[in-house]
Design a protein around this nucleic acid. Structure first.
Length: 278
DNA sequence: AGACAAACCTGTCTGC
DNA sequence: TGCAGACAGGTTTGTC
């Protein structure tokens, strides 16, 4: 579910956790993402008595640094994962897979109905060696990506630019919603082979990605169905989407006069305006 | 290299 | 009303 703006919204709303001490960890024992059973015992040991020292984000991954320990928790929300900071714990909601009890009395709760997400331990300072993080491209919010580098990365693949954007290696954090949004903003047809884009167009795309992600972040992310921040708030950006999930709607460019079309690329919905995207 | 499909798993919506 | 099937914001893996 969550793309960069949603994960960043979660990171920001988790800020009250900073300085809190973890007392204990509870786990459902259910497996999360394929091939990676949750290492509950290792996580328990690493978290017990640890302080939440920092909250970081790399693309769609969240890192919770455990103070005075050499580890960080690496969290991916997959499609339906949620991290909630719960102040007055009630009965455990269904699909809760991990829960960290805090010294102050609250809880950090990870729930994920579809279990496409993951929670694991990584060695701090060496997180980039993790298989999932190794191939991540620059983060559009953190790294001020270099337009020259972005252009050269695009040149390496002839795949459609929409498909290439989802790959996370060109740029980290763009998912299915914001790929369509950024391509509309940059007036680029989603089927254009990435390598065929000339320099001014990759510059425009990189700018559009930054603009789209910042704008979504200002609205607390997109809650199409059930995304909520760590404090339980929904994001309002669904009201401001230009093309995503707007098939047959008029193109938001008043002078264009086109209407939004839906197509499938790699079995994933792509929305675009055939009139102003080339 | 890249197109394509399948895998992980559950909830929700659509159409009959 | 009930049920089957399609579909969903992500990533990984395998085949051709």
């Amino acid at each position: 579910m969550p793309e960069l703006p949603e994960v960043e919204t979660v990171r920001r709303t988790l800020a009250p956790l900073l300085g809190e001490t973890i007392v204990s960890t509870w786990g459902s024992g259910k497996a999360l993402r394929l091939g990676r059973p949750v290492e509950l015992e290792r996580i328990r040991t690493a978290c017990a008595g640890a302080e939440v020292a920092a909250l970081r984000r790399l693309g769609k991954f969240l890192l919770i640094d455990l103070g005075q320990r050499e580890h960080s928790l690496l969290v991916h929300l997959g499609m339906s994962g949620r991290l909630r900071h719960v102040h007055s714990p009630r009965a455990r909601a269904p699909h809760t897979h991990l829960e960290w009890t805090l010294k102050g009395g609250g809880l950090l709760r990870y729930s994920d109905p579809r279990r496409f997400g993951s929670v694991e331990l990584v060695e701090r300072g060496r997180e980039r060696e993790h298989p999932s993080l190794r191939r991540l491209g620059p983060d559009p919010l953190e790294d001020c990506p270099d337009p020259e580098l972005f252009f050269r990365s695009c040149r390496t693949t002839r795949r459609p630019i929409k498909v290439a954007l989802l790959d996370q290696s060109l740029i980290a954090g763009v998912g299915n919603i914001y790929a369509s949004e950024a391509l509309w903003q940059a007036r680029i047809h989603p089927s254009t082979p990435a390598a065929r884009l000339r320099r001014p167009r990759t510059d425009a795309l990189l700018q559009a990605i930054g603009k789209v992600l910042h704008r979504a972040l200002e609205h607390g992310g997109t809650s199409l169905k059930d995304f909520v921040a760590a404090d339980g708030q929904s994001g309002s950006h669904a009201h401001y989407l230009w093309v995503y999930d707007r098939e047959h709607a008029p193109c938001p460019r008043p002078e264009c006069g086109g209407s939004i079309r839906r197509t499938l690329q790699q079995q994933r919905a792509t929305f675009y305006c055939p009139r102003c995207q080339h």
